[in-house]
Nucleic acid binder design. Structure first.
Length: 741
DNA sequence: ATAGGGTTAG
């Protein structure tokens, strides 16, 4: 934003502090006015309006002093956002005095839109008012917050003209402005030139160095200080945390305790957050019990929220939610912290439930809330809630700073919930796309097997001058691997190193090896494994094992399975896959041998689970489960489906009976795989012709895939199914994956 | 008479 300032002409005798205007009554009379003393206890917007009404009645609102008090309250109150009200009152004041202008500037500078302070300032100056020493800290804060460096420099010029640089508040504000704009040299110059250095200006400089990543210089300034207060210590601790130096931050905390510096709320918040980020749960617990030992912080919401974050990040979700439940007062950050904690730990259902509780409690979600909830919707396929959130964002979160991140999250949610068109609409409506927006859309297309669309988007992205990163290439390569596009995959894989200078990582190799395996090029796949600089993981061996099954390569399968078992001995999948391969080859004694090993190991298996969202409720099914309240109807429907399937000529592939063991291991339940339960439930719960969207945590088995194709034809339903790697769109007897997966 | 600077939870 370019702001032009009217030239300032300063009369030589310009007083820095204005005298009170003659219309203002003497101070002690005002102090006894009841409506003014009420202001100090005013905690709600409603009571503010009442006090204002009272002031109008008594004529008090005609005094600049009383008005400035009212405006100050609006602008600084931590209990409500009174800025809009202050603005409306301000606009009615005919001749605001200096104090009132400054109060309004203060309000705008500390608002979410700090640039508006500069705009107001331009207006003030053009009306002929001059700034005083109190004005500049607000203006400089606005420049610091909005990172408007040029304006900051201009204001510095005006400070010099007015001779305000001798004021220590202005002095520190200048340092802070330059520091937070990354101009440490300028900040240092102001600091060195001044004789007004105190603990506050030193600390501003520390923060400057630290936020630029130069913790060593920050430390040097800290060491130079002759006296330090708790804020200086806090600033150093923050500096270390921001630069990943959690150990040093915690060392600093211990040191300040040794020096008998009493930590304050900020210290503890900082320290707890350092523990959370570094996973130092033991130290975190110590700090927690110290806080509980009545040091006067028991009621600090900030500390409580930091502790909730600590426990949920360190995996102790129960303690976190216990703390949350016991809060007598919760704010949006408390909710966001725990919701985010759940999402972080893959507890998506818990995240959505808590989100719903938050709405019921009357708390308004913000952008951070949505950035935690949308991934949960995406994982669960909860598209109704996702759509609701989309509307909410358009209505209430239009101008938040995270707008682009929110939209990217919406793209991901729609794509993962099966509505790739909605994802595209969000993408196309974006004015400002980040690299992750492009990536999310490319991934969406890849997931839906639409390799062409993914590559078209990639070239559009290049035309827009956006440089791809390693994530982009995972998207493109997985698009290839979902469609079996070996040559294109090879080409892209080469170009990422040669053209874009991006080193392939495990995931990129994984896609290539999957492609090679699928094409039966085992030798080349093994060569790639030899060549790659990273150790192959279970995913890679698993994809090769599947390729062996497809190509009937028993010998290789055995060696791959051994590798897989070595890396992931707890993963039953490798045994199951191998036994299936033996079964296909008719080697029944080997099947029995593997089964015996499996039984002996008592390995945990991941139960297959499918879900379908009906009227905003996500219904989950596991294999053969009869827990659903409409279980009877569902099984009735299943029987009907099986009859119709048989009439349509569907014959279950008996050679694949053991296939079910691969992922849904339970005797003879082939017919009642979880996705079939979800489909049956969908058929009886929706109007004819409604599209059904199923989300499954594992891969679809061949039999279910064949059956679903036929069901889509028999019942004239479009069925969209997401398995753990991709989407299948079933319609009129065919699947979008062309049976390649 | 009245105001302003540095650190602080998701």
């Amino acid at each position: 934003m370019a702001l032009s300032y009217p030239p300032l002409t300063v009369p030589s005798s310009h007083p820095l502090h204005f005298l009170p205007s003659s219309s203002d009554p003497p101070y002690d009379i005002l102090r006894t006015q009841p409506s003014l003393s009420l202001l100090s206890n005013c905690k709600t917007h409603q009571s503010l309006r009442e006090i204002h009404a009272q002031m109008i009645k008594t004529g008090l609102h005609n005094t600049n002093y009383a008005l400035s008090k009212l405006l100050e309250l609006c602008v600084v109150s931590p209990h409500f956002d009174g800025l809009p009200y202050a603005v409306s009152v301000f606009e009615t004041i005919q001749e605001p005095n200096q104090l009132i202008w400054n109060t309004m500037l203060r309000g705008h500078a500390s608002s979410s839109d700090p640039v508006s302070a500069l705009e107001l300032y331009v207006r003030m100056v053009s009306l002929g008012h001059l700034p005083n020493a109190y004005t500049f800290p607000f203006l400089l804060k606005s420049c610091a917050k909005s990172k408007t460096f040029e304006e900051g420099r201009q204001i510095h010029g005006q400070v010099m003209k007015l001779g305000c640089d001798l004021d220590r508040y202005v002095h520190t504000s200048l340092i802070s402005m330059y520091a937070r704009n990354g101009r440490l040299e300028d900040a240092r110059k102001v600091f060195d030139k001044s004789s007004q250095r105190d603990v506050v200006s030193y600390t501003a400089l520390i923060t400057g160095y630290a936020s630029r990543g130069d913790v060593r210089s920050a430390r040097k300034v800290f060491d130079e200080m002759s006296e330090r207060d708790v804020v200086s210590w806090n600033a150093m601790i923050t500096g270390y945390i921001e630069n990943g130096g959690y150990e040093e931050a915690l060392e600093f905390f211990k040191e300040m305790m040794r020096m008998n510096v009493r930590p304050d709320e900020g210290t503890l918040v900082n320290v707890v957050s350092a523990c959370a980020q570094s996973g130092s749960i033991e130290l975190g617990r110590q700090v927690h019990s110290w806080v509980d030992d009545d040091h006067g912080f028991g009621s600090s919401l900030k500390i409580a929220n930091a502790l909730i974050d600590l426990y949920s990040k360190c995996g102790d979700v129960d303690t976190a939610s216990g703390l949350f439940e016991r809060l007598s007062y919760k704010d949006v950050i408390s909710w966001n912290t725990l919701i985010g904690g759940y999402t972080h730990k893959n507890l998506y259902k818990e995240a959505l439930l808590l989100f719903q509780e938050m709405l019921r409690s009357g708390e308004s979600p913000d952008d951070v809330t949505m950035l935690s909830v949308l991934p949960a919707c995406a994982h669960l396929g909860a598209i109704d809630i996702g759509r609701w959130i989309h509307l909410y964002i358009d209505k209430k979160l239009k101008s938040v700073t995270n707008g682009s991140a929110l939209r990217t999250s919406l793209i991901d949610m729609y794509a993962k919930c099966g509505d790739i068109e909605a994802a595209q609409q969000v993408f196309n409506s974006m004015i400002c796309r980040s690299l992750s927006s492009w990536n999310a859309m490319i991934f969406g297309f890849a997931m839906h097997g639409r390799a062409n669309a993914a590559f078209d988007l990639f070239s559009r992205m290049r035309k827009n001058g956006v440089e791809p990163d390693d994530i982009t290439f995972i998207g493109l390569l997985s698009a290839c691997s979902h469609s079996g596009l070996l040559d294109l995959g090879r080409h892209i894989f080469k170009s990422m190193t040669h053209e874009y200078n991006i080193a392939p990582k495990l995931e990129h190799y994984g896609c290539m090896i999957d492609l090679l395996g699928h094409s039966g090029l085992f030798k080349e796949a093994e060569e790639m494994i030899q060549r790659m600089p990273v150790e192959p993981d279970g995913v890679i061996w698993c994809s090769l094992l599947k390729a062996c099954k497809k190509h009937g390569n028993l010998e290789l399968a055995e060696s791959f399975a051994q590798k897989l078992i070595k890396i992931e001995p707890e993963n039953s999948g490798s045994y199951v896959l191998l036994s299936n391969i033996y079964a296909t080859a008719g080697r029944w004694e080997d099947v029995a041998r593997i089964r015996a090993i499996l039984n002996g190991k008592r390995l945990k298996k991941v139960p297959g689970c499918s879900s379908i969202e009906i009227d905003s409720v996500v219904h989950e099914f596991i294999i053969g489960d009869k827990l659903h309240p409409q279980s009877k109807e569902i099984y009735g429907m299943l029987e009907e489906i099986d009859v119709l399937l048989e009439e349509a000529g569907f014959v279950p592939d008996t050679s694949e009976v053991l296939q079910e063991m691969e992922e849904e291991w339970k005797e003879g339940a082939l017919r009642h795989h979880s996705e079939k339960l979800a489909i049956a439930f969908g058929l009886i719960s929706t109007k004819p012709g409604t599209k059904l969207t199923i989300v499954k945590n594992l891969r679809v088995c061949r039999n279910c895939h064949e059956a679903t194709k036929l069901i889509s034809k028999i019942y004239k339903r479009e069925i969209v199914a997401r398995d753990r790697t991709r989407f299948h769109h079933f319609s009129d007897g065919v699947c979008s994956c062309c049976d390649y997966w």
